[in-house]
Write a protein that binds this DNA or RNA. Structure first.
Length: 499
RNA sequence: GCCCCCAUCGUCUAGCGGUCCAGGACGCCGCCCUUUCACGGCGGUAGCGCGGGUUCGAAUCCCGCUGGGGGUACCA
């Protein structure tokens, strides 16, 4: 083909000449999914990259499922991700008059027709088509006599309005990501444009909005690919020019099924609750289906704006890997400077209610522990696992106790040895504790792990925690000694009892 | 069933006919560092789904198969 061997063909598409206008159009029927979040990100980046406009539109024509709570949550999450919009949020529920006007125009133009089929009749039609290995496309009867129509009306029936898909014919999408995609009209049913109560359906409202809002490029999930010809048909019937389309591949769970709740944290809200910060979340999402080159794996927002290009987005669906997000998140956390990290940690703990019911100085304690956990966690949600023991009385978790019980005698010797050294320490500092414990370790002639692990468990009750020296220093001598003794007592009991 | 899309290491991907006996990242394995869990450093493991073409030459182009995904509503 000529385009393949010649230099880039000059663009004749008018959409190319206008400043970029993109939109993110979620339906407020739940929290924002990672797939939706990525779509929003892609749109936002495309807009910022081109100096265009990012529009937010809530597609709430389904009154049953749309909720104000969901809408508020979506706006909140978008802001959390750092995605600000230039126009909107528009709500389709507030634009009802516009859609009805357009429906009237379509009626006047003869592009739609009243269809009287009952749900049962439609089911039967589709079932029959399927049985005959035909496409289950619905075409309503348009040849009702005035008498029949009068009879329907007498029954109290009201018709839906279906789009009269031109036959024969085809609609071709020149997709920015997928290239040319052709749909034979024979495969497209006469889709409903106005419900029997006169309200617009998604395909009508979305098409009308994209046209009227002067959207130049629609970037959305691949699940909308088959809706695209319908929307193009509507726009053209209304005398408009369809925008360019870019259908991004879906995000899958590890079982290669479309990502959903059962795959774990599938919404940004959950990611936030798990203690992921916006930067790594953005970075992980943008890399699902897009790469700048063969090496770069982390980007600042500025770099993304500069480098992002929708046409480079992959065609194939990507599996969302939580582990990778965790790694990115951990690296990001470690890259923060100490104060910045401490601020983020304390703020997150406060937001998630971690300090509720705890001592008044808990936030302060958290701040002091920040440097101890910064290098150890991959997300803020791991804080409690690492440092939670500091806020509670000693409570040895079963797993940790099992470690001590493996060799009770040695455990007692190590803990006892450690206790002997720290209780006589004059300066209870990290360095002093480290020196004393290291010395004792030498004297007892066991490996570091054998000696230090029991110390950790004795005071924290956990096998994983903040560093042992730092933990002791933070606890203070009195509390440390008390915990050593408590653990020792518990083991001694077992030792004698077991004999 | 019908329509559409997709196909490089386990996962995310680079690759756009020769520079690729395929590069990076995560995972995994090993070693080192830290006399602690962790972090970090170094090394290794692993892939072009299959079969036909086209071409001097194919991961890259074409066809078929297989596999995966999406759609198939008076939901969006």
């Amino acid at each position: 083909m000529a385009a393949a061997i010649l230099p880039p063909v000059p663009d004749t598409d008018t959409a190319h000449d206008r400043p970029l206008r993109v939109r993110f159009a979620p339906s407020p029927t739940g929290s924002l999914h990672v797939g939706g979040a990525r779509t929003a990100l892609f749109n936002w980046l495309a807009a910022r990259h081109a100096g265009g406009t990012f529009i937010l539109r809530l597609e709430d024509t389904d009154r049953e499922r749309s909720t104000p709570e969901s809408e508020a949550e979506i706006l909140r999450v978008l802001q959390w991700m750092g995605l600000d919009w230039d126009e909107g949020p528009y709500r389709q529920s507030e634009r009802d008059g516009i859609y009805r006007e357009c429906i009237e125009k379509l009626k006047a133009a003869g592009a739609v027709y009243a269809a009287w089929e009952t749900p049962e009749e439609l089911d039967a039609m589709r079932a029959e088509a399927r049985a005959n290995k035909q496409a289950p496309v619905v075409r309503g009867r348009r040849d009702h006599s005035p008498e029949e129509i009068a009879a329907f009306e007498a029954e109290g029936r009201t018709p839906v309005w279906r789009f009269a898909v031109p036959l024969p014919g085809e609609t071709v999408i020149d997709d920015v990501i997928r290239g040319t995609v052709t749909f034979d009209h024979a495969q497209i049913e006469d889709f409903v444009v106005a419900r029997s109560d006169g309200s617009p359906t998604y395909n009508l409202a979305a098409a009308v909005d994209d046209m009227l809002m002067d959207i130049t490029e629609v970037i959305r999930g691949e699940d909308h690919l088959s809706n695209t010809p319908k929307q193009m048909l509507v726009i053209r019937a209304l005398g408009g020019e369809p925008p360019r389309y870019a259908h991004v591949p879906l995000i899958l769970g590890t079982d290669r099924k479309r990502l959903s709740k059962r795959h774990g944290a599938a919404s940004v809200e959950e990611l936030e609750a798990d203690g992921f910060l916006p930067q790594p979340v953005r970075n992980a999402l943008v890399l699902l289906g897009w790469a700048y080159d063969d090496k770069t794996t982390t980007f600042t927002m500025g770099e993304l704006i500069e480098k992002f290009d929708v046409s480079r987005v992959s065609k194939s669906p990507a599996v969302f890997d939580m582990k990778k997000l965790e790694v990115m998140s951990g690296r990001y956390l470690r890259s923060m400077d100490e104060a910045e990290f401490a601020d983020a940690l304390v703020a997150w703990l406060a937001d998630t209610g971690y300090f509720d019911g705890k001592a008044a100085d808990a936030p302060d304690l958290a701040r002091r522990t920040a440097p101890l956990v910064q290098r150890k966690m991959s997300r803020l949600g791991e804080y409690d696992r690492l440092a939670g023991w500091l806020y509670r009385p000693l409570d040895i978790e079963p797993e940790a106790l099992a470690v001590l019980e493996e060799d009770v005698k040695t455990s007692i010797q190590c803990i006892g040895g450690g206790l002997g050294r720290i209780e006589v320490l004059e300066e209870f500092t990290v360095d002093a504790i480290k020196d004393a414990l290291s010395d004792q370790l030498h004297i007892q002639g066991v490996t570091a792990r054998t000696f230090l692990e029991p110390q950790r468990i004795a005071v924290t009750g956990q096998t994983v925690s903040t560093g042992i020296y730092e933990s002791l220093a933070l606890l203070g001598r009195d509390e440390s000694v008390a915990r050593y003794r408590a653990t020792l007592g518990r083991l001694a009991e077992q030792w004698t009892g077991g004999e």
